[in-house]
Computed example of a mutant assay.
Amino acid sequence: MNITCYIVDDEPGAITLLSEYIERTPGLELVGTALDPLVALDRLTGANAPDITFVDVDMRLLSGLELAGMVNLYTTVVFTTAFQEYALQAYEKEAFDYLLKPITYERFAKCIQHAKRKKKLSVKNNYPIYKDFFTIKSEIKGRVVKVKFDEVIYIEGAVNYIMVHTAEAKHMTYLTMKEIEQHLPKPLFARTHRSFLINVNFVKVIERGQVRMENGDTLALGGHYKQRFLDMMDEHLVRTERSALRPTGSGL
């Protein structure tokens, strides 16, 4: 299976060079490019995100560092930049690699070989374990709580703690939103706000920048999570095609 690649860079020449490198390298497939990081954002999240995304650090509107913080749970980020001083910040964003421009094919190939080894190891260790739950340390010392994914209505973040809301109880534990998000199945859970992760099966109403859940709680919908969430929910929208078939002058 090929490793899928995507390029985000506001310099067309940089995209051309990396595209040539990808096309000449066996086992790689270029699935898209973007000059605008805002355009790339939707493509880089969700189940169909590419395996590797090459991201320029210094871009207008949205920097590569900011973009990486939004997408690195979905795709492996490799930074590309002409400025070596960004290296520390890049690794703080959990970048897989850091390619300094002008990028040589030798350095590019070394990065890809590393990625291929990582992918083989991941496949080798991917035993068929069917897990429908996670466990967390309770606020009560010495207690560990098992929580099933389909019982979680939503998760609320509060600084270094999270509150897991289920129909039966609330569980507080010492975790960040990023840490818990890594252990949740992506199609079932979605971020609607920096403070909320929701189980989409419990969504009842979406209106006026808010999401009302089945248990009656109303949660904020905002920030850069809003449009991504709305687009995801729009995929489930039942549409009619009757308007296209309506007779002219029907008055309906």
Rank of each mutant, 00 (worst) to 15 (best):
A244Q: 13
F134M: 12
T104I: 07
V31M: 12
D97F: 06
G157F: 03
I3S: 04
K141R: 06
T4H: 01
N72Y: 07
R194W: 01
N201I: 02
E66N: 06
P128Q: 06
K119Y: 05
F149V: 01
Q89S: 15
L175D: 01
E168F: 03
T76D: 05
Y127P: 00
M163Y: 11
T53K: 00
L73W: 02
I155E: 10
H193Q: 01
D217A: 15
L197D: 02
H114N: 11
L65H: 07
D132R: 13
F202P: 03
N125K: 00
Q84V: 11
Q182P: 05
L67R: 01
D58S: 07
G157M: 00
E168A: 14
L18T: 03
K119C: 02
R191K: 15
H224S: 13
G249V: 13
E179D: 10
S122I: 07
K204D: 14
G209Q: 08
I3N: 05
T218W: 03
T176Y: 14
E168K: 14
K124A: 12
T16S: 10
S243M: 10
Q113S: 11
H236D: 11
G223K: 15
G142F: 02
R191N: 08
V164F: 01
H236F: 15
Y225L: 03
E92H: 10
M172S: 05
E151A: 10
A190Q: 10
T104P: 04
F229T: 09
R107N: 07
Y74D: 14
R24D: 08
C5L: 10
E23T: 11
L121A: 12
I103E: 03
E151D: 15
E94A: 15
Q89E: 15
L197N: 01
G222F: 13
D231V: 05
P50R: 06
G64V: 11
G222W: 11
E214R: 13
T173G: 04
A190K: 09
F83A: 11
S122A: 14
P185N: 09
E241N: 14
L17V: 13
I136N: 04
M59Y: 12
Y105L: 06
L18V: 09
Y91M: 12
D9K: 00
K120I: 05
K186F: 04
P128I: 02
T166S: 13
V159R: 15
T80L: 01
T104N: 01
K137M: 00
M232D: 00
L252N: 10
S138A: 14
I155W: 09
L252F: 11
R239F: 09
I206W: 07
E29P: 06
L38M: 15
P102N: 09
E85F: 15
R60V: 04
A14R: 06
A90Q: 05
V123Y: 08
L41D: 01
D217F: 08
V145L: 14
L38T: 07
T248C: 01
N2F: 13
R24S: 14
P37R: 03
D51N: 13
K170H: 12
M163D: 08
G142P: 01
N215Y: 03
V144C: 06
F134Q: 04
L73E: 11
R191C: 01
S122L: 09
K141A: 10
F96K: 05
K170F: 09
L121C: 02
G46I: 15
T104V: 01
L245G: 02
